[in-house]
Design a protein around this nucleic acid. Sequence first.
DNA 1: GCCATCGGTATCCTATAGATACTAACGGAA
DNA 2: TTCCGTTAGTATCTATAGGATACCGATGGC
Lengths: 126, 126
Amino acid sequence: MPGADIMDPLCPSRVVFQRIGDKWASLVVQVLADGPVRFSELRKHVHVITPKVLTQTLRTLERDGLITRTVFAQVPPRVDYQLTGLGESLLGPLAVLREWAESNVPSILDARDAYDEARDGALPEG
Amino acid sequence: MPGADIMDPLCPSRVVFQRIGDKWASLVVQVLADGPVRFSELRKHVHVITPKVLTQTLRTLERDGLITRTVFAQVPPRVDYQLTGLGESLLGPLAVLREWAESNVPSILDARDAYDEARDGALPEG
DNA sequence: GCCATCGGTATCCTATAGATACTAACGGAA
DNA sequence: TTCCGTTAGTATCTATAGGATACCGATGGC
């Protein structure tokens, strides 16, 4: 996709990029990595998301073709959510990011401590 | 970092992960890829961000040790923002995601069209 | 008849983002 | 000496999104 530019607010790639970066969407996608999951299970795994926001997230992911929604005619109801091929293709990139996040937690926490200490704590030459 | 779990809302890795996924933070980091950039240049490159939000984003990135802020004693003022080593280490993961986004724009746009058509347009057996 | 289950909605409240106007500090022009 | 332009933000207000909570419909079991 030459010509696509994340920095251009009119370019769809920016919208797509920010959708991935959505607070909940990427977590939901990762929960679905191992196969279909139903609504209530998603709620438990993606800790702590409210039903309203989970519904919004799922609708958006469905609209973008990343997941499918399957309703079973049962009572009580059962609805399965599952990654599409497109959704699965996102798992790799997300895993890279997740790995970075999990392995750099200490550095970031240290940086925060130092930063906060520099203003709340002993101010240098107050 | 074994034990880090993105799904746990109490785990710092989740906070870190969602910070990366912040609407603006990841764009700013990518603009800084080629070296220090000053505030006004960032505003131009990260199209269209308001100064308030850019400031917030920069402060957070600085606090997390991803960028440094350098003030030059000049008038008019000059402030350079620059990636730290930690910030640079994030460029790879972000590039992967960016590539995914830019190359999958067509698929996602198609999915949206199909989805919207199924409800606004000719409903099947209305 | 009443309760539990599941996948959501509806309602309300707050927190964040966004738009816009403004400020400090100084050099140079008028 | 007053005014203007530059840069890096703040202050203020409004709009939108997120979050907490309560509720709903359908049905099988007690």
